[in-house]
Amino acid sequence: MRKVLRGIAASFIATLTLVGTATAASAAPADKPQVLASWTQTSASSQNAWIAANANQGAWAAYGYDWSTDLCSNSPDNPFGFPFEQSCARHDFGYRNYKAMGTFDANKSRLDSAFYEDLKRVCNRYSGATKSSCNATAWTYYEAVSVFGYKNATLGG
Rank of each mutant, 00 (worst) to 15 (best):
A136V: 11
A106T: 07
N135Q: 15
A114Y: 07
S132W: 02
T140Q: 12
N107E: 10
T137M: 11
N124T: 12
S113V: 08
R121Y: 12
Y98W: 07
N97S: 00
T103E: 01
N135W: 06
K108F: 06
S113K: 04
C88I: 01
L111R: 02
V122M: 05
C123I: 09
R90M: 03
Y126H: 09
A144G: 15
A106H: 04
R90F: 01
W139P: 02
Y126F: 15
N124Q: 14
A144H: 10
V145R: 11
E117W: 01
A138M: 08
T140C: 06
C123W: 01
L111K: 02
A129C: 10
Y98L: 06
Y142N: 09
A114S: 11
F115E: 03
S113F: 05
L119V: 07
D112A: 09
D112C: 09
F93T: 01
L111H: 02
T140W: 11
G94L: 04
M101A: 12
A136T: 09
A144T: 13
E143D: 14
C88R: 04
L119D: 00
K108G: 01
F115C: 06
S109Y: 12
T137Y: 04
F104G: 04
S113R: 09
A89F: 01
K108S: 01
Y98K: 00
L111A: 01
R90Y: 07
